[in-house]
Design a protein around this nucleic acid. Sequence first.
DNA 1: CTCGTAAGTTACTCATGCGTAACCTTACGC
DNA 2: GCGTAAGGTTACGCATGAGTAACTTACGAG
Lengths: 214, 214
Amino acid sequence: MLASVSARRLPRSVREPQMLDAAVAEFARLGFHAASMDDIAARAGVSKPMVYAYLGAKDDVFVACLHREGTRVMQAIVDVVDPALAPDEQLWHGMRAFFGYVAANRDGWSVLYRQAQGPFADEVATMRARMIEVVAGMLARAVEGRGRSSRTTDLTPLAFALVGASESLADWLADHPDEKPELVAGRLMNVVWLGAGQLLDGVTWRPLAPAGRR
Amino acid sequence: MLASVSARRLPRSVREPQMLDAAVAEFARLGFHAASMDDIAARAGVSKPMVYAYLGAKDDVFVACLHREGTRVMQAIVDVVDPALAPDEQLWHGMRAFFGYVAANRDGWSVLYRQAQGPFADEVATMRARMIEVVAGMLARAVEGRGRSSRTTDLTPLAFALVGASESLADWLADHPDEKPELVAGRLMNVVWLGAGQLLDGVTWRPLAPAGRR
DNA sequence: CTCGTAAGTTACTCATGCGTAACCTTACGC
DNA sequence: GCGTAAGGTTACGCATGAGTAACTTACGAG
């Protein structure tokens, strides 16, 4: 039986990406520790020492996965966010690109979001921080555009919440393949922008006074 | 040297919870596979066979952790959400309780949210589904209270986004010990409720027409 | 044609860590 | 005070899987 993925003896330039695809799939399925180098190799249509020859040890393989998928998602967003657009349009475009990546690349997102823990957390944390910074900056410009001034410190946690909500919803999307990414992005955009929009205009929600019960 | 956690020869009723504490801490730190039974035992101030005697195999220990922490967080929220309150107040109380649990119990939350994958996903999925359901139901009642009707399917992803935003903010909170959890909950409440509030009133955000550029 | 090198393999070593067997020892009920 | 069960231990068997050594085979440049 011939493994479907490989006509034998492929050049490195095609075999190596195959290995990364296989690694991403396995890491997504089982997590870093439970995934085995043998399984990754087998899925790539090759035997274990080839993986070591091209990608190195297991840690290296994992980092390579994080790097490739991380670059992909960042690039997907950067490609569509035009600084000349209005802030809400920027957010909208970015969100669509993000959910598009997740929908087209579920395993990659799973590895980035769910599996990158422990010693590998830093690899992802940097990118996440950059993303949040960008969002916070965008919000800051939105505030100024409305003639208000707000300290950046107040916007960072908001940016955190937005990114977090996106990530969580992306996770949900990964388990609901029927949902259109566009639609999910629209839903999220609605709640965050209507909410953020009011906040930026100075409208705030307040709880009832803690002492008096109504 | 005497292990600080244990005066020797403790009764099961005190040792067993200690083991669970240790297991939660180790699983949070390293994940299911990387955490070792020996380390869990050592952290509990005891040797490995004791863990097997009280809690069983590694899988059983993990499930026990999920069960305990899951019950805790659900209980913390249920305890403070009074169905008689207005929907926004319900959400506010629930969020404060949730942030309180996460802040006081980071490891437990980490195990529930990040580590429960693969074969264990089902254990947590049920509880998470219940939580989402509760939030979605609350939103549904809020909609009806405003004289509109909305299908539940539209509210579920919103509920998911709320939970995700909360988790993300909890992470941020961990890196900013000066911030009061109460205040963070307030910020999140602002954006989600102002946003959800408008949505429930039928106000929607729309992108510019895709064809015409302004 | 032929020879070098890139592509690929089988078959191992070795560490790690789960799970258990067999064995101590302290408290406390009678 | 003494026996028994509950609390606790050391030391091992055994499977799994990372990483490697040593070898084989196809392709293409000269």
